[in-house]
Simulated assay, not measured.
Amino acid sequence: MTSAARDPYTGRLDALVVEGRTVRDRALLQARGEVVRGAADTVARALAALPPDVGRVEVDMSEVTFMDTSGLECLDVLGEYGRRRGVPVAVTGWRGQPRRVLELVGLDDTDPLPAAPFAGSPVRNASAVARERAEQLGSLRAEIAQLRHAIDSRPVIDQARGILMAAHSCTPEQAWHVLREASQRTNTKLREVAGALIASTAPGGPPPSGALRAALRAAVARHVPPPPAAGDGTAR
């Protein structure tokens, strides 16, 4: 059972796989791959395939290599299964980045599922917990989105820096300062400045806007020392 999940950093497909077996009345599930969008459906299908007389579910997460906020959805699916069936569900073996996600949202990184309110036990009011989890989820989603945007932007910015280094014989750090100052001067996102510069170097490519050209010239003048005059440094 897999989710068609795409690695957001390398582009490789590393779908979540949930394999299971039963030992007496225990269901032992092994999760492997990445817990991203679509993973909750994979977990739900794995649970639906379990025998109806299962008395306990144990999920091993030790082979999960990456997890975003979809992991919280998976925990909700597992918790709901335990409450609905009246069986304990344990999710253990957290390692690396997935474990860090649990820490960020304030969950137990040994077994993040709270004790399930089994049949006959009182169900506590979880509205405050639900609100807190929703706030943590929103914050974590925003952080992950920012990280992905930064990673996606890096190749474009590095290519633009290379163009400036070749054109002005400057260092990588100087090229970075030129791009950043041009971005600030024109109130344009750094990635857009880099993209415009790259596009202008293609055959027949559109030149940067007048404002951006002026900002780049000013930034180069500030951050890139002029080449030494002919004869400087020669022996007399």
Rank of each mutant, 00 (worst) to 15 (best):
L137R: 15
L197V: 11
G162A: 11
G162R: 14
L179C: 03
I144C: 05
L104F: 02
R100S: 09
L107A: 11
T171P: 10
P203K: 10
W94S: 01
T92R: 15
D108R: 04
A194H: 02
T188L: 14
R131Q: 12
A166W: 07
R85S: 03
A160R: 12
A142E: 09
R84G: 05
L102A: 04
V89K: 00
G86I: 05
T92I: 15
P203N: 09
P203D: 11
H177F: 13
R95Q: 13
A196I: 07
R99I: 03
A119S: 00
G79H: 12
A182G: 08
T188N: 14
E80Q: 10
S153V: 00
E135K: 13
V87Q: 00
V89M: 04
Q146G: 10
R95G: 07
L78G: 01
D158F: 09
R148D: 12
R185K: 07
V101H: 06
Q159E: 15
P114E: 01
H177L: 14
R95D: 10
C170E: 04
S153C: 05
R83V: 01
D108A: 07
G93N: 09
L137I: 09
E181Y: 04
A119W: 05
A150V: 09
G82E: 01
Q97A: 13
A119R: 05
R83T: 03
L147D: 08
E135D: 10
T92A: 14
E192G: 11
A199L: 15
R83S: 00
E80N: 11
S153H: 01
W176T: 14
L137S: 13
P88S: 01
I151W: 12
S169C: 10
A145Y: 04
N125H: 04
R131P: 08
A199W: 06
D158K: 12
V101M: 13
M165I: 13
T201R: 15
E143N: 02
G93L: 13
E132G: 06
P88W: 00
A130C: 00
R154F: 14
L179G: 03
R124Y: 02
A128N: 06
Q146K: 08
G120I: 00
G120R: 01
R161A: 15
G106I: 11
E143K: 05
G106R: 12
S200I: 11
A126H: 07
R185V: 04
T110A: 02
T110R: 08
N125F: 06
R100K: 07
Q146Y: 03
S153M: 08
L102T: 02
R185E: 07
E192P: 03
A119K: 00
G120N: 00
V178I: 10
